[in-house]
Design a protein around this nucleic acid. Structure first.
Lengths: 245, 245
DNA sequence: AAGCTAAGTGAACGGCGTTAACTATGGCAA
DNA sequence: TTGCCATAGTTAACGCCGTTCACTTAGCTT
């Protein structure tokens, strides 16, 4: 690994300048403001020059999406590492970090978690790859989730029903994250879609008809979710929710 | 109210032809395929003529979104009316109708429930209007939900906690749908975001890393949700769940 | 029949992604 | 050191796009 030559340094600098410009346009004007010509204009370049770095605008956007996935994952990991070892507290802070990032970076969240934009479609399609940034983000949440729910009954429908309905369709999850007890797998997916639904509805502006402070709903739902996942204890505030089955 | 003149007939015919063309383009090529020039080309017209019917492409898309909201609501209402009077069965079939429409019309679902597209943004912003199609869709689900949960304890955090966290922030919901007990309001929003999260993740392709048959997860989650909302009875088994096609 | 209004046309402006042909330059080998 | 070549950049062009403007045509009204 020798020292990078001058051309290599210039190339990586230009590449990150392109990505930075794309990000800035994404933040200020949404995905439809990201154009090769605008990026090049901001850099004092011409649009065709960008084709030396990306084969198309779609590819550029896809690369940006990958970076954003990693950024979000690192944010979530940082929140986890800044918390004590109890998985419940870790999950709480990780979920909060996810929402905080989403609300603070709505355009970025929209790009990676909203409608598949043309360049990001292949992303979603080839998600069965365990190295996919989406799967890696899921894995970060899965670890403390498994730790939290280990060894006690989860508030799911009966395991026989889960087996019958869901048993044959969890192959992608097993491929990505290793084998899991079916009730843990189901409870995780249920929690993940709940988290996604809450955050996505807030960021996409679909909660305005119901609440004027989405964070309050988020915090309430988070408490409810974690209470349901905890083993029922005598005097638990949620006896019927947690121990129905 | 006299008979429509010839020009009026032509105008409404052209208007619906424009909308139909826009819908067809949306379905075949996604929202970015909807262009004034393409619509006009398909109609044997020129693009500026459309400005006699819509002030801009954004307005045309917003009108299309409104129509789609109504179409989805009618689909859900039809599913409700084709089911018996028990609110649990009605809710089950309404949720299934929602998912069926979303999966069968992914581009349309994406337009009204995904990233706010420029023309649809004002839609989301002015959602506090009870006549807003989104609020009306919510109301359709709210009625059987209230009936289902009336008179028994819901699996929510304690009401005092709900009051403290959420009490001051439900004004838009009350404005749109009338006053509700806070545990009912919270449980409804929780269920609504769960439903949205599930369907949106499936339609947007964000579940590929986890399941190979999203419908199985949907059905399981639906059963779990309805079981949690019902008063616990000995030997409860949610019979409708098994009577699926 | 005259005149007004609504519907539609064609040309044009500026913006977009992308391609092709061309120029200048950094790095390497003879 | 000189000569070469791959690389990074340029300009020009094509065909899309939304939108505006001036103009024509056809329908309706009086």
């Amino acid at each position: 690994m020798t020292a990078p030559t001058r051309r290599e340094r210039l190339r990586t600098a230009t590449l990150s300048e392109i990505k930075g410009g794309a990000r800035r346009l994404l933040v200020t004007g949404g995905i439809e403001a990201v154009s090769l010509r605008a990026i090049a204009r901001d850099m004092g370049m011409t649009a065709p020059a960008i084709y030396r770095y990306f084969p198309s605008l779609e590819a550029l956007v896809a690369g940006l999406a990958g970076d954003l996935y990693d950024e979000l994952r690192q944010e979530v990991e940082a929140a986890r590492d800044a918390t004590g070892p109890e998985p419940a507290g870790q999950l709480l802070e990780m979920c909060r970090a996810l929402r905080r990032w989403a609300v603070g970076h709505p355009a970025e969240f929209t790009l990676i978690f909203g409608n598949p934009v043309p360049g990001v479609i292949e992303f979603a399609d080839h998600c069965v790859d365990p190295d996919h940034p989406g799967a890696r983000l899921g894995a970060v949440f899965l670890a403390p989730f498994v730790a939290l729910t280990r060894g006690h009954r989860l508030p799911t429908p009966p395991v026989e029903l889960l087996q019958e309905r869901l048993g044959g369709h969890l192959a992608p999850l097993a491929t990505n994250q290793g084998p899991l007890p079916i009730d843990v797998a189901y409870a995780f997916l249920s929690a993940w879609t709940r988290l996604y639904g809450l955050v996505a509805m807030e960021v996409f502006g679909h909660l305005g008809w119901a609440v004027d402070e989405p964070e309050a709903l988020f915090e309430t739902e988070l408490i409810s979710l974690l209470l349901q996942l905890r083993p029922a204890e005598p005097g638990d505030a949620l006896p019927e929710g947690g121990a129905r089955h």
